[in-house]
């Protein structure tokens, strides 16, 4: 059983890691602690529902449409909600992301109704049996895709000009402006990437479970994941996400599904008290 839980946890944790990575990108770009990351993930599940079930698009086309829509959503959010508050203290910015999550949730429920929707993509749904261990192909695909996305993500930041400018902006806003970087455009880009990563996670979670706004709760686990990993650290976000996935599986497997939250939020609390900068964070930078 332990192996089973660990493997499932690893697979789900990879998805959380992806969502958390999106969160970390937004945080690093403009220090926005995005409480709407959970609902952005939910948007992914519903975008998939629209693209496949409602529009009946072939799967590869649907994927492109979903990603393009996610990028657009991120850019619009940055323009409408975040840019007007740029330079404001922490609290109002947190609040506006909370307001954003209320708005998005309401919009989804108005557009799609409150009943959960089943997703029917052409992702494999069989079960892989390896000895005692049963592994859903969907989970496995999710994990693989998550890792590929992370790889693409790192390549983007390491090897492209846009990636370089994003890293520079995250490093110092002022120096970036004075180097002629259009910081607004960079921040919009960060939101586009952050949203795309959340949405990809949402497509998988919507498929593993059902597309519903209840998934927001799972998406919000990206927050403890990122903080446990270290707010400033990109690898930290991924490791934190995987850790949260494994803890979740172990807690719900051995104790009860209800116990999940406590076993994630108690380590978060301990981490905040003992090592607020997280597992991988930098002590100096950790003082927010």
């Amino acid at each position: 059983m332990l192996v089973q839980f660990l493997l499932t946890g690893l697979a789900l944790g990879s998805i959380y890691g992806l969502v958390a990575l999106g969160f970390a990108v937004i945080y690093k770009a403009e220090r926005v602690f995005n409480f709407a990351q959970g609902i952005l993930m939910v948007c992914g599940a519903y975008l998939a529902y629209t693209a496949t079930t409602q529009l009946g698009l072939p799967f590869p086309v649907a994927v492109i449409v979903i990603i393009a829509a996610a990028a657009l959503l991120g850019i619009v959010i940055q323009f409408l909600f975040i840019r007007p508050l740029s330079g404001q203290p922490l609290l109002p910015v947190i609040m506006i992301t909370i307001a954003l999550s209320i708005i998005l949730k309401a919009l989804i429920e108005i557009l799609y109704g409150v009943q959960p929707k089943p997703l029917a993509t052409s992702l494999p749904t069989g079960v892989l049996i390896l000895g005692d261990v049963r592994l859903s192909q969907l989970n496995l695909t999710a994990a693989v895709v998550s890792w590929v996305c992370m790889g693409v993500f790192f390549a983007f930041f390491r090897f492209t000009k846009a990636g370089l400018l994003m890293r520079a902006t995250a490093d110092s806003h002022e120096a970036a402006i004075l180097s002629g970087v259009n910081v607004n455009r960079i921040n919009a880009g960060a939101w586009a990437i952050g949203t795309i990563l959340a949405v990809i996670g949402g497509v998988f979670l919507g498929q593993i479970q059902l597309a519903s706004t209840e998934l927001e709760h799972i998406g919000l686990l990206a927050l403890p994941a990122v903080v446990i990993g270290g707010l400033q650290s990109i690898p930290g976000a991924i490791v934190g996400g995987i850790l949260v996935g494994v803890i979740e599986q172990l807690a719900s497997g051995y104790i009860s599904p209800k116990a999940r939250d406590v076993f994630i939020y108690i380590p978060l609390l301990i981490m905040l008290l003992v090592r607020p900068w997280g597992l991988f964070g930098n002590r100096e930078l950790g003082r927010v």
């Binding site: 602690f33 922490l90 947190i94 927050l223 403890p224 903080v227 707010l231 209800k258 116990a259 939250d261 406590v262 994630i264 939020y265 108690i266 978060l268 609390l269 905040l272 008290l273 607020p276 003082r287 927010v288």
Partner: peptide, 27 residues
């Protein structure tokens, strides 16, 4: 108590953690 150690964002998160812990206790 956490507010004696952590500020700003980290404090907000500690209250969020607290929320989930208390709700679990309640249930």
């Amino acid at each position: 108590l956490p507010s004696l150690r952590v500020r700003g964002l980290y404090f907000v998160l500690s209250t969020m953690a607290l929320h989930f812990i208390v709700v679990f206790a309640f249930s």
